[in-house]
């Protein structure tokens, strides 16, 4: 139902496009710090633990591919998705829920204006545009810190690391990361928008909607993660 409404609202681009820009700024720029921070630690810890487990048993250059693939295929998109489920999801659900219970959405409708093109589309399009960008930055940050950590703990040479990184790497891996990011971007925007939009019953209702939105988006991300791995990765 909501998806149908969203598609119907698309032609009203003169309304949603300018508002999307504002949302992009707050979603993208605002989330950048925490996303990079988490990616940096994820990269470093992956590298350190792999170093602890595998030293001596495998050639050093394998470390390069291990860190790269783990970050790009899994940790970059999923960790970013989960953080954004909290950051964007909670925000969207609380904003829209508050607007619902304080009759602001009714007021918008009473002016003959569509809440879909004024409120929902800008938020969702901003998410779809910014989440992949954030994931790519997170991938980059994770790789960088993973590489630095391997280097400092194992003394691996840059040449060995990049040889390993390229050894198992396929261009598709990057696309896979972006496809995941796009799917997670849809999840962390559409689900909270829907939950907030249909909130009711005052402050408590908004609180409940916010929690429900974050939990639902997080669970959906993990499910989608599994499904995408099963469907897209050749086994």
């Amino acid at each position: 139902m909501l998806l149908l409404e969203l598609v119907r609202g698309l032609p009203e681009w003169r309304i949603w496009l300018p508002r999307t820009r504002d949302q992009c700024l707050s979603v993208g720029y605002g989330s950048l710090g925490i996303v990079l921070l988490v990616a940096a630690f994820a990269g470093a810890v992956t590298a350190l633990q792999a170093a602890y487990q595998f030293t001596g048993s495998v050639p050093l250059y394998i470390m390069g591919s291990l860190v790269t693939e783990t970050i790009i295929l899994e940790l970059g998109p999923v960790l970013t998705g989960l953080i954004l489920a909290g950051r964007i999801g909670a925000r969207y659900a609380a904003e829209l829920g508050t607007m619902r219970v304080t009759e602001q959405i009714d007021a918008l409708e009473s002016l003959g204006r569509s809440p879909v093109s004024h409120l929902l589309l800008p938020r969702i399009v901003a998410g779809l545009a910014m989440v992949p960008a954030l994931v790519i930055l997170a991938d980059g940050m994770g790789l960088l810190c993973g590489w630095l950590a391997t280097k400092s703990s194992l003394g691996i040479t840059d040449a060995d690391f990049s040889y390993g990184a390229r050894y198992f790497f396929r261009e598709f891996d990057l696309w896979y990361s972006v496809i995941k990011a796009e799917a997670f971007g849809a999840v962390v925007t559409v689900v909270p928008c829907y939950v907030g939009f249909t909130a009711s019953e005052g402050a408590e209702g908004v609180g409940r909607a916010t929690t429900r939105a974050v939990v639902a988006a997080s669970v959906l991300i993990l499910l989608l993660d599994t499904v995408l791995a099963k469907v897209l990765l050749p086994s």
Binding site: R8, T102, Q104, A107, S110, L111, G112, R113
Partner: peptide
């Protein structure tokens, strides 16, 4: 329908009991 309802609503001003301003 959706469009006709929006058109009708532009003809009807509605002042909410609490104001319902966009905050």
């Amino acid at each position: 329908g959706r469009r006709q309802l929006a058109a009708l609503r532009t003809k009807i001003g509605y002042a909410f009991q609490t104001g319902a301003l966009f905050d």
